[in-house]
Write a protein that binds this DNA or RNA. Structure first.
Length: 416
RNA sequence: GGAGGGGUGGUCGAGUGGUUAAAGGCACCGGACUGUAAAUCCGGCGGGGUAACCCUACGUUGGUUCGAAUCCAACCCCCUCCA
């Protein structure tokens, strides 16, 4: 591997953040010489970001830590068009209201990882709707259309796969890459941004921006992509029983976030420690070398570090305490999801399946019944085998009832 | 505008009149084994009901039929070729 003179490139290479880079050596020289502004764009297709975006967020964090300036680009304008990259069929169009609401949710995430402000290395957030919404069609076509070759555009992965699979690709989506390229040019002009980063699936879009900058303004722009992170089993990261692993606490409690990392596969521990924590590499090497059951210690550290970044150390410690109580001592923890029931309801008795569903452990009464039949439901740690069992105040243990669906999903029931 | 092909559950994909809540794969959930891991094996996987059973679902809306995902009509959407 090349020796880098810039801290940023050296660190992100060592830690496994880099998939591809346009002109590594020139970029390294630039980063060594001056404060570089770099950006990553984010879709506004969901109300929060999930761990799939965390690699790129960590990348921005390292950028800032090594003395450069991160820009977070909200795709308020481009989300209205829809990025065809990595999708083999057309996405649904979102309403403007939904996009605005999603943007608000996403903004909150970044403040945990980056320092925003007006200083030279303070992060800034921009919204491409600010310039895209006001574009005039003819003027835009005349100014930038000549720089794009249809022949070339047709060879880009996002376009080619659609064509090969004979899936529909609308003209609207076909324009996406032009708009994203224009974003880069616009940011370069406005704020002197020199580097665009993103996921590996963004390579084509990023390269387009680099080329547009050179053709229009003779700018020397750079692109860098991070690899798509999958688990050692080959699955995309971030899936779980309850759905995506969101970074917003109101979408996913810190305890569940902590549990996600705690349950990392053995084979992923080292890689994840490098990507999702800021522990020194020699420490990670030591943790990674742990064998057998000892690797669980490494997973706890991973969970602690990642949760501390996302939700703060207090939340991480609370999650760890709860996990310890629940898994290592078979008890209950403060941080478990909790539902409250009326005392009157409990006096009258609540059917077990209904209570599991109310606690959010199952999606329907039928699912709860199947869970009970399959032997996966437990009440205060004891297996339930009777579907018809009623839960009453007599089941209260220390003023609460602990329900478990499987070994990893627990909830507390308290009386209102 | 014309011709042909297609739209099935979270997803991929069978299924051309009844025994089809709809094969199979994947994903996901539970159990066993473990280390809150992986792999493997077993079970589950639309909703409601203790149950008999009832409801909802195969692009949409109507129709034929005792009975339709399956046949017919109109409409919507996608693909390919032609103009």
């Amino acid at each position: 591997m090349t020796a880098f003179s810039s801290d940023f490139l050296r660190i992100v290479h060592e830690r496994g953040f880099v998939d591809a880079c346009t002109h590594t050596e020139e970029l390294d020289a630039l980063l060594s010489k001056e404060v570089v502004s770099a950006y990553i764009g984010y879709d506004c297709t969901a109300p929060s970001l999930h761990v799939g975006s965390l690699v790129s967020i960590m990348l921005l964090r390292w950028l800032q830590k090594t003395g450069h300036r991160p820009f977070v680009l909200m795709g308020g304008g481009t989300t209205r068009v829809g990025d065809p990259s990595g999708k083999d069929e057309a996405r649904k169009l979102l309403s403007d209201e939904a996009i605005a609401a999603n943007m608000t949710g996403i903004k909150g995430v970044f403040s945990k990882y980056l320092t925003f402000g007006d200083g030279p290395t303070d992060a800034r957030m921009v919204n491409n709707a600010d310039w895209l919404d006001g574009l005039g069609y003819i003027a835009f076509l005349r100014d930038y259309g000549p720089h794009f070759s249809i022949n070339r555009m047709l060879t880009f992965d996002s376009v080619r796969t659609r064509l090969e699979r004979e899936h529909h690709l609308s003209f609207l989506e076909f324009n996406y890459m032009i708009l994203q390229a224009y974003d880069f040019l616009e940011l370069a002009r406005r704020d002197g941004v020199r580097l665009q980063m993103g996921g590996a699936d963004q390579w084509g879009n990023i390269v387009n921006g680099v080329e547009l900058g050179r053709r229009c303004d003779g700018l020397s722009l750079f692109g860098l992509t991070v690899p798509l992170i999958t688990t050692a089993s080959g699955a995309k990261m971030g899936k779980s029983a309850q759905g995506a692993i969101w970074l917003n606490e109101d979408q996913l409690p810190a305890y569940d976030f902590w549990q996600f990392w705690r349950n990392t596969e053995d084979a992923d521990v080292g890689r994840f420690l490098r990507l999702f924590t800021e522990l020194p590499l020699d420490e990670i090497a030591r943790l990674e070398a742990l064998g057998g059951a000892e690797i669980n210690e490494a997973k706890k550290i991973l969970a602690h570090e990642a949760t501390t970044l996302a939700h703060g150390e207090a939340a991480a410690l609370a999650a760890a305490e709860t996990a310890k109580a629940v898994f290592e001592q078979g008890g209950v923890g403060e941080d478990l999801p909790t539902v409250t029931v009326d005392a009157a309801d409990l006096e009258a008795g609540i059917a077990v399946p209904a209570l599991f569903t109310r606690a959010g452990l199952t999606a329907s009464n039928g699912e709860a019944k199947r869970l009970i039949k399959g032997g996966g439901a437990r009440l205060n740690g004891a297996a339930i085998n009777d579907i018809n069992r009623m839960i009453t105040a007599a089941d209260l243990s220390g003023g609460e009832i602990k329900l478990s669906a499987g070994k990893k999903h627990h909830a507390l029931v308290k009386v209102a």
